[in-house]
Amino acid sequence: MINFITNFGFSVLRLSTPIIYAALACTVTKKAGLLNMSVEGMMLCAALLGVISSALTQSVLLGVLGAMLAGCLVGALISYVNLVGKSELYLTCIAINLMATGGTTFALYMITGAKGTTFSYLASLAVPTIQIPIIKDIPLLGPILSGHSLLTYLAFLCTALIWWLLFKTRLGLRLRSVGENPHAAESVGISVTRIRTTAYLIAGAVAGLGGAFMSMSYVAWFSRDMVAGRGFIGLSANNIANGSPVVATIFSMLFGMADTVANILQLTDAGIAYFVKMLPYVITIVGMVVMSVFQIRRRKHMKQKAVAAAIQEAAAEKQT
């Protein structure tokens, strides 16, 4: 039983990692006033480039940097088309995701000659796992918290970093002002285009880390469509969190838990396994629905209270 709990806890952290990165990447652009619907494409490109560059350079660091660069490049492309080309964001992101899916498959095939994976074709590296000294010896918590990929710990660090960036720095102040009232920002000479481009580049780098996790930690190779909607799951975690990096991380972990459950249950029956595979996606939809209903209810309730109070007040005034 204890074994099960530690395994489960460990898996939740592991499987939440890419979703956290995705959610944070979305948070940055959301604060700048734009939805980042191509985080999926960013992660996919990053995952591939991480594998390629780590295989070529035989350096984990350069591999991860390559992944981040890939994310940034995708971010740059989106901001160019969206901000300079003034394109519809939805369509742009659809096109980018389409190109990322097809493009990575194409590259994969060109490299390996078969459409499957880079496994055994490319000698790519994995990000090292870390045993945290003292903590690893704590019973129960130790095996859950210790022994993760460096990128998993970095994900939580990123949450703090993004929070600091958004609320404590000059860039964050400008970013929030652009998101809340772009005309105001523009009128004091803050370039909305530049800030939003910066937001997309940061998002690209963060999503790049998520992609790197997929191909350099989760597994140590690239396979087609390996992000499998995790970018979108992160996007919905961010949507639910309404722009707060901390809440986004918490919800990412919830979705990560669904993924874990799916992973554990999968070991049984092959036919039922397909239903289990649906779980993360079903839970994401359910999560979105529940949160929206909750928010709408709360807003409605507050409004009803305000209305009732106002009407009561009006009646009281009439009496006097």
């Binding site: 619907m37 979108f232 919905s236 949507n239 649906m278 996606y281 939809i285 979105m288 929206s292």
Partner: peptide
């Protein structure tokens, strides 16, 4: 509910 249609529909596709 105002949930994002792209996310919803892509989740649905996987399901």
């Amino acid at each position: 509910l105002g949930a994002n249609i792209i996310v919803l529909s892509i989740m649905l596709n996987y399901i």
